[in-house]
């Protein structure tokens, strides 16, 4: 019947997916010609943190919400991990402790936003905005606004490690992406998440605990943010509130470009991955070409508006 025939590829994704693939291929070829393998490897090192943040943004968006605090969560988790490293010292045997502290920070801070949205029914923009202010404030208080450095040497070394030539952090991102993909595409939770994004009341009437769906979405968003934060910690060999704040726009852009309906409900992994790779390749390409960050801001903002306009014209 429908078991093997890719039932969840509605035709409306195809033109976009095709366009993305063509652009991607073009970008990769151009990049390879320009920079060669060095370029590809720089993409592979920069992509994981960005991709993880996009995943962190995607789940709340599918549920019909938004998480403006993902970067504050990522940085706060990295700060907590860095401070814990400072406390436990250089022993690699104790390394799981700071990691765990960072991930737990992400889960807790995400869950708190989820609680505000799910049980107090505060609008997601306000809940995550209030949380953003609190988390940033707490993070700055804990660090006096400075970068936390002096990490054990194995932390930055971790960022450079490869498995079969592929950076380890890229594999971490890939694993997270696959898990999110399975969650969205293969589990009941994924169906519930999408149903909540489309029509929460009807979903609740079908006996689904919609408050829990929100809570889990924001907790996972926090967890993914924390993983991104830890990747940044390793790559920059330091943690500071305010790192990579400009990613807020690009994560939204990647999510919307990746077929997630900003009004909630629709979202799948593969188009999302295509958008992440496409954007990172373009960003790295722009970087290589010496374009400055302001040019990128204009380009990303314009691209986001263009995608929204494209969707509007098609509907």
């Amino acid at each position: 019947m429908m078991s093997l025939s890719l039932p969840d590829t509605p035709s409306r994704y195809r033109p976009l997916g095709l366009a993305a693939t063509v652009l991607l291929a073009g970008g990769l070829i151009a990049a390879a010609l320009a920079g060669g393998g060095g370029f590809l490897s720089s993409v592979a090192y920069q992509l994981p943190e960005f991709g993880l943040l996009v995943l962190a943004m995607a789940l709340p968006l599918i549920a019909g919400g938004i998480n403006l605090a993902i970067l504050a969560i990522a940085n706060l988790s990295a700060v907590v991990a860095a401070l814990t490293f400072g406390a436990v010292g250089d022993s690699p045997w104790l390394a799981p402790l700071p990691l765990f502290a960072g991930l737990a920070t992400g889960c807790l801070t995400g869950a708190l936003i989820g609680l505000l949205i799910a049980y107090l029914r505060i609008a997601p923009i306000i809940a995550s905005l209030g949380a953003l202010l609190v988390y940033t404030g707490v993070g700055i208080l804990a660090t006096n606004g400075a970068a936390v450095t002096g990490l054990p040497a194995f932390v930055p070394a971790f960022a450079g490690q490869t498995v079969a030539g592929i950076p380890l952090i890229a594999l971490i991102f890939l694993a997270a992406a696959i898990l999110v993909g399975v969650l969205l595409g293969r589990t009941p939770y994924g169906r519930y998440l999408s149903a909540v994004g489309y029509n929460e009341t009807a979903t609740a009437y079908s006996g689904i605990d919609t408050a829990r769906i929100h809570l889990v979405a924001y907790t996972l968003s926090g967890l993914l943010g924390a993983v991104a934060g830890l990747v940044m910690l390793a790559r920059f060999n330091s943690a500071r509130m305010g790192y990579a704040d400009s990613y807020l726009l690009t994560t939204l852009l990647a999510a919307v470009l990746g077929g997630i309906d900003p009004n909630g409900g629709r979202g799948r992994l593969l188009p999302l991955l295509a958008a992440i790779v496409l954007l990172q390749v373009t960003a790295s390409g722009l970087n290589l070409a010496g374009a400055n960050q302001h040019f990128s801001a204009v380009a990303w903002g314009g691209l986001l508006l263009a995608k929204l306009a494209y969707d509007r014209l098609r509907s």
Binding site: I125, L249, P262, F295, A297, G301
Partner: peptide, 18 residues
């Protein structure tokens, strides 16, 4: 655009600022 205005105006913020 009929998209959530927060997303639209984050884009505009970046375009103007950039």
């Amino acid at each position: 655009l009929r998209a959530p205005p927060i997303i639209t105006t984050i884009a505009l913020l970046n375009v103007y600022g950039g």
